[in-house]
Simulated scan of single mutants.
Amino acid sequence: MEEQFWQTTILDFFIAFGVVVGGVALGGIGAFLTNDYPMERMLRLAEQLKIWAMVAALGGTFDTIRAIEVNVLGGQMGQVGQQLIFIMSSFLGAHIGVLLIHWLIQGEL
């Protein structure tokens, strides 16, 4: 059971990270092809994709919120803690992806 927890935590982190980095990279290519300013577009996309990266990593926010609700009402606070850790893991993955993009582009944070 503990192994499943760590697998999910690590996967959530890297899925969120990958959504931000991959989305920004492909968005930058699209901006270049449409004669937009790629660097500016990439910085905006990084911020805009952060929440969607978290949603993608968690498999849909309604499942996570529902799990928290059921476990709070059932008194299983350990399960609630696990769900909160999954949310934090996906947030950190998305945020580190945004920081990496800012660092690579040398944009202001």
Rank of each mutant, 00 (worst) to 15 (best):
E2I: 14
E3L: 08
Q4D: 09
Q4Y: 02
Q7F: 06
Q7K: 14
Q7S: 08
Q7V: 01
Q7A: 11
T8C: 07
T9G: 01
T9S: 03
T9L: 13
L11R: 15
L11M: 08
L11P: 00
D12L: 05
F13A: 13
F13G: 06
F14T: 03
F14E: 02
I15T: 09
I15C: 04
A16V: 12
A16E: 09
F17E: 00
F17I: 01
F17S: 01
V21C: 08
G22Y: 06
G22R: 08
G23D: 04
V24L: 07
A25Q: 10
A25E: 07
L26I: 15
L26N: 02
G28L: 15
G28F: 12
I29G: 09
G30N: 11
A31T: 07
A31S: 12
A31R: 02
F32W: 01
L33Y: 04
L33K: 01
T34L: 10
T34N: 14
T34S: 13
N35F: 08
D36Q: 14
D36M: 13
Y37S: 14
Y37M: 10
Y37Q: 11
M39Y: 12
E40Y: 02
R41V: 15
R41F: 10
M42Y: 08
L43Y: 03
R44W: 06
L45I: 15
A46H: 01
A46P: 00
E47Y: 06
Q48L: 10
L49F: 11
K50M: 13
W52M: 06
W52D: 00
A53W: 04
A53C: 07
M54I: 15
V55E: 00
L58C: 08
G59R: 00
G60F: 05
G60K: 06
T61H: 02
T64G: 04
T64P: 00
I65Y: 05
I65E: 02
I65P: 01
I65M: 14
R66E: 05
A67M: 07
A67H: 12
A67F: 04
I68F: 06
I68C: 07
I68M: 15
I68V: 12
E69V: 10
V70Q: 13
N71W: 06
N71M: 12
N71F: 04
N71Q: 10
N71E: 12
V72I: 15
G74R: 11
G74C: 10
G75W: 07
G75F: 05
G75N: 13
Q76T: 13
M77K: 03
M77R: 02
M77Q: 06
M77N: 09
G78L: 11
V80L: 11
G81K: 07
Q82I: 06
Q82H: 08
Q82M: 06
L84I: 14
L84C: 10
L84D: 08
F86L: 13
I87Q: 02
I87R: 01
F91M: 14
F91N: 00
F91K: 00
L92E: 04
L92F: 09
L92W: 03
G93R: 00
G93T: 00
G97T: 03
G97Y: 00
L99I: 10
L99T: 13
L99D: 14
H102M: 09
H102D: 15
H102Q: 15
W103E: 09
L104R: 10
I105M: 13
I105E: 14
G107Y: 03
E108Y: 03
E108M: 02
L109K: 12
